[in-house]
Design a binder for these strands. Structure first.
Length: 293
DNA sequence: CGTTCATCCTGAGAGC
DNA sequence: TGCTCTCAGGATGAAC
């Protein structure tokens, strides 16, 4: 479920609550949560135990926690714990005695005896793995992910060219994490509404200035959502302390079918797209004559 | 090569 | 109440 703002809220929670702490034990319930850790769940547990956690990083919707370099202070961390929340994953900071959550998959205990870190995931599309970090500190599973709009490595002109080169619906481009990362179904629809562009317009037919403005709307809406603590429709998206964000009240398009458009008053429509839903204003975002899908 | 589709899961809500 | 159906913040690999 979480997109960039929600994942960043979680990253900040990790930075505040687990950085610098020593893992004294890890307990996994089932092996599915570690399915992307090729050497297997036992290996994951064994290699995390005793490690000191560094400050959490994020690219797009991926999180990783570098394991602090054990010896030389100037040595870069060689490995990191990679976390993807998928559609329903949560990282929670909870007291050691707290009852197990319904879909608890991993529990980290710390040598200081303080709060545990727990990975809870209803649908288990998310997961954990331990991976090597490259020379720039990026884990292998994240290497193919493009920088997100807040990354110093983000290059707007490159992103514009990538979109311009695609012969496909522009919304597909926004959702493709190899073009720009961090955008999901909610913020794609919000940015398209702000730009006044229908998501099924063929990306290559849009002008570079239009694509550039669309990307700027993406950045702006992601920033506004982050400032509001993210979008929470229910208890599935919460920060590490279990608190909800309140950006859902600011959504202009996503989930607003039948509600008047905030610009022109026309009822927002819902359409099927990519086996899910898209929301848009029929008047501000006219459908293309020949939709690219 | 780029693009599209099916698939991994559980739960909530609607309609009958 | 209970059944069936649809839908949900995502990413991936295999097929075209």
């Amino acid at each position: 479920m979480p997109e960039l703002p929600e994942v960043e809220v979680v990253r900040r929670g990790l930075a505040a609550h687990v950085t610098g702490r020593t893992v004294s034990g890890v307990e996994l319930s089932g092996s599915r949560v570690a399915r992307r850790h090729v050497p297997g769940p036992e290996d994951l547990v064994a290699r995390l135990t005793g490690q000191v956690l560094g400050e959490a990083h994020r690219r797009g919707k991926y999180l990783w926690i570098p394991l602090a370099a054990p010896d030389a202070a100037d040595e870069l961390p060689a490995e990191g714990l990679v976390v993807h929340l998928g559609m329903s994953g949560q990282l929670l900071v909870r007291p050691p005695g707290a009852p197990d959550e319904r879909h608890l998959h991993a529990r980290f205990d710390f040598a200081d005896g303080g709060p545990q870190l727990r990975f809870v995931d209803q649908r288990t599309f998310g997961g954990l793995s331990l991976d090597r970090l490259d020379g720039r500190g990026i884990p292998a599973p994240v290497r193919h992910i493009a920088p997100d709009p807040f990354d110093p490595a983000y290059d707007r002109p490159t992103a514009v060219e990538r979109l311009k080169a695609r012969h496909s619906a522009v919304k597909r481009g926004l959702l493709d994490q190899r073009v720009v990362s961090g955008i999901g179904n909610i913020y794609a629809d919000e940015a398209l509404w702000r730009a006044g562009v229908h998501g099924e317009r063929d990306s290559s037919t849009l002008t570079r200035p239009v694509l550039g403005r669309l990307l700027d709307h993406v950045r702006d809406v992601l920033a506004a959502a982050l400032a509001a603590g993210g979008t929470s429709f229910d208890r599935l998206y919460v920060d590490v302390n279990g608190a909800s964000g309140y950006f859902s009240r600011s959504l202009a398009a996503y989930g607003q079918a039948g509600m008047p458009c905030r610009r022109c008053g026309t009822p927002i429509r819902r359409e099927a797209f990519m086996n899910r839903s898209s929301y848009s204003c029929p008047r501000c975002q006219p459908r293309p004559r020949r939709a690219a899908r």
